[in-house]
Design a protein around this nucleic acid. Sequence first.
DNA 1: CTTGAAATACATGCGGC
DNA 2: GCCGCATGTATTTCAAG
Lengths: 156, 156
Amino acid sequence: MKLDNYDKAILKILQSEGRISNQELAERINLSPAPCLRRVRQLESVGLVEAYVALLDARKLGLTLLSFIQISMDKHTPERFAEFEREIASCPQVLECHLVTGQAADYLLKVIVKDMDDFQQFLLNRLTRIAGVSGVQSSFVLKSPVKSTALPLIDH
Amino acid sequence: MKLDNYDKAILKILQSEGRISNQELAERINLSPAPCLRRVRQLESVGLVEAYVALLDARKLGLTLLSFIQISMDKHTPERFAEFEREIASCPQVLECHLVTGQAADYLLKVIVKDMDDFQQFLLNRLTRIAGVSGVQSSFVLKSPVKSTALPLIDH
DNA sequence: CTTGAAATACATGCGGC
DNA sequence: GCCGCATGTATTTCAAG
């Protein structure tokens, strides 16, 4: 699909204001509401807009400890990977799970928990119990100066 | 602020359906529209809901290479860090930037680009030109089996 | 793309539990 | 205090030009 400037403008705005009314959106991109809405609907239907979500303040929910965990596996077989991913998928603490290239690690997890106690529980009772997990290396986030939670559209 | 079950139900739904109408939201949680909306507005005003955003499909935008970059700094002075963060903030390729604990790295970046060529450009022309950057270690994402982009509310 | 009209949804005040 | 009703207002959604 080919995006013209209207589409790009729409995406750019929706990325940070997902609940903007169609009227205001139309005004901002200098188009009338009807065609603007048609464009939005099409962007949704081709899957360019995957979803609309509310972003919550983790700290205010009591989740104050964010960490990245690098994991290496003993054997690189499809079964090992499949099982790991199945186990991980059921952990609400895991925000992201990436299979990555690199020397030390096979997976990189982004994990959020309440405190160190919870972290330890997660590590001991969940992660290290998964078959094939042979190495675990954690680092904790002190602060996150740049937060662009959504996808910067092609400003590149 | 104290969250009751209505509030939790609201947050849980808004996390994955940020653009749901208040009427349907009210139905789902078995409450009438008026008090439901009042609750949503309050959750917004206390900052528990930080923002509503549209999630875009990076691949469909031509951004196919996701990577994590670990960066170490030569000196751990506030000036070094401040400058690094200022530089990084102006890079649209950078989705996240975290100051982290750990042996090798000071920062962990999550970066998305079109292809290896762009990646190289970013590395050479931007990252390694920032004062104080002394070590760079990249890994590339092959796939991301778990994608919970938003914050899993306390299912813990 | 624009217009316009019907249907829906939002916001607020008020009474009652 | 918070729910639910009812009202006026704004917004969304389509059809037709």
